[in-house]
């Protein structure tokens, strides 16, 4: 079918770091470094074709087979639950999904807990596991504002250094799950490009210090 291994990378700083790792592993594509408006970059020599996509779209490209392989955050995988292989923890973009609230927050278990988040699926599953009744408020950005203005009691969001939380008098209450970038693969395409995919996983595994 397609001789290239199609790889969807997340646009942005993390994606560029990830590309560096691919390059170190022997899957470079010099044209990607050129300053251009091109969306697709091919390297006949290494047999890879890269394309930059919005980070939250990587899993969609891979699940639907437009990309054989992609790099997506564990947060996206937990939120959208795409039916893909998760072949490697790339140990980049390390952070955590956490519940945060005002520093003096006390959970009144007699009331429904109002939770503001971008990650409604992760939130609902987490609180379902705890048997806690919640009211999920879906927001698309500036989540930290919600408890400050009384829109919600707590938030569920990604916490990297905690600086934004601290600057807004918020603190982490509970950690839900650690997050990092994962190498994912389309299950069907893998069946027909398994040698190429496994070779890439082995090479990347060496770089990230994983034994695969």
């Amino acid at each position: 079918m397609n001789k290239y291994l199609n790889i969807a990378l997340p646009k942005g700083r993390l994606g560029e770091k990830i590309y560096d790792t691919f390059e170190k592993a022997g899957y470079g594509c010099p044209s990607i470094r050129e300053n251009s408006r091109k969306l697709i970059f091919e390297s006949e020599e290494t047999g890879v074709r890269y394309f930059w996509v919005k980070p939250s779209d990587v899993a969609i490209y891979v699940e639907r087979g437009a990309a054989d392989i992609g790099v997506a955050g564990k947060d996206i995988l937990l939120e959208y639950e795409p039916d893909v292989y998760e072949l490697l923890d790339l140990k980049e973009g390390v952070c955590r999904m956490a519940v945060a609230g005002k520093k003096d927050f006390r959970d009144d278990t007699g009331k429904t807990l109002r939770v503001a988040t971008k990650f409604t699926n992760i939130t609902e599953k987490y609180y379902l596991g705890k048997g806690r009744d919640i009211d999920v408020i879906k927001l698309n950005g500036s989540i930290e504002l919600a408890p400050v203005l009384g829109l919600s009691d707590v938030i569920v969001d990604i916490v990297e250094t905690g600086t934004t939380l601290r600057e807004n008098d918020l603190a982490v209450i509970e950690e839900i799950v650690p997050i990092s970038a994962r190498l994912i693969a389309n299950k069907a395409n893998y069946k027909f490009k398994s040698d190429e995919t496994d070779a890439l996983v082995r090479a990347l595994g060496k770089i990230v210090g994983e034994r695969t």
Partner: peptide
Amino acid sequence: LSVVDDIHYYNGFVFKGYVEGAPAA
């Protein structure tokens, strides 16, 4: 052996079929 299905319903042999060009089983 990575082919699995819900163990509350399935047991023994399970299988999935793929054809080149289709994005899922």
